[in-house]
Design a protein around this nucleic acid. Structure first.
Lengths: 171, 171
DNA sequence: CGATTTGCGTTGCTAAATGCTACCTACCTT
DNA sequence: AAGGTAGGTAGCATTTAGCAACGCAAATCG
């Protein structure tokens, strides 16, 4: 029971706080979503999001600062600034979709239209989930945190299971 | 070009704002993470997260209110309140892991230890990503938003591609 | 050219959220 | 009853968000 909480002592050793430093701020995800949907300009974000100008300005600056978007003045009209997702920003798509899917599943009156599809066959994408290295879909029950030293060892042969994610849904 | 932004007009028709209503608040994700790691009590959250008491109280109340956690006084000691993730809360694991993985990938000095593993073979889980219904891994380029009416139609045979997620990484 | 519009951003002020510390109350232990 | 524990409130300082007005350079119009 003492060992159970060990990984939480060094909370900063987790990618989550790092991710939330930028994306945890209000509007960041909505701006990201707008970026994914083809918006690139200040006034576009402003009018579609319903965010205040100064906040939008600040958020865009922070996203650029953190390398999630890049800022570029258009050569043909140098008033126009193009905000565009970087590779780092594009890498947030799975996280955003997972959140969106969760919101759709539990939200009230979310019509789920349009639907994100595989362009090849036009079928909706699968629910974002957790997969093993070989592609098997994994449930909560099949997961455990392991020290890097114990990775790959067969079950119950390694030193310590540090934390098993919350398994007791039913209690 | 006119049709391109249409889905953004009804932004509320998206699961993302719904998800962010609770999970977009500061500390919500960190509390969730703590819950996933076996913490159940107020003082546990308080000491491991470094959050203020009143904020923690408020956040827990909101998570309970939204059905993400449930609140139960223990019969053997009715001072003790057990906060436990519900099925709805557990369903946020993919979103949380996707965020965490992103933070690990781009964060500075995030040691990625411990590692979340498949207990069966002890191998780390795959990166959370976007899959087609048949399990093929999909990249940004292979995705498009479709009206529900056009789902399943072969490529370029349906009425309108509404929005193609940001494809031009290279511009 | 000068006047006006456009695109983006800043400034000043108000409201709301957060954080800190101290306090409160029920319950358990002795 | 006395004292400690678990969870939660209350008051006040600080930070962040929201709103409206202004600034300003680049484009466009007459």
């Amino acid at each position: 029971m003492g060992k159970l909480h060990e990984p939480l002592n060094d909370m900063q050793n987790c990618g989550l706080p790092a991710a939330l430093e930028v994306m945890g701020e209000r509007w960041s995800f909505m701006i990201l979503r707008a970026g994914f949907n083809g918006l690139h300009h200040f006034e576009e974000f402003l009018s579609t999001l319903g965010i205040a100008r100064n906040i939008l300005s600040n958020r865009l600056a922070r996203l650029v600062e953190h390398g999630i978007m890049k800022r570029q003045a258009l050569p043909e009209d140098r008033r126009k600034i193009e905000y565009r997702l970087t590779a780092k920003g594009l890498d947030l798509l799975p996280a955003m979709l997972a959140l969106r899917q969760w919101g759709e599943k539990y939200g009230e009156g979310v019509p789920s239209n349009p639907v994100l599809c595989d362009e090849r066959d036009g079928q909706p994408i699968a629910l974002i989930g957790i997969n093993a290295h070989d592609g098997r879909r994994l449930g909560y029950m099949e997961l455990e945190w392991r020290d890097v030293a114990d990775v790959g060892k067969p079950a119950m042969q390694y030193e310590d299971v540090l934390v098993k994610p919350e398994l007791s849904v039913l209690r």
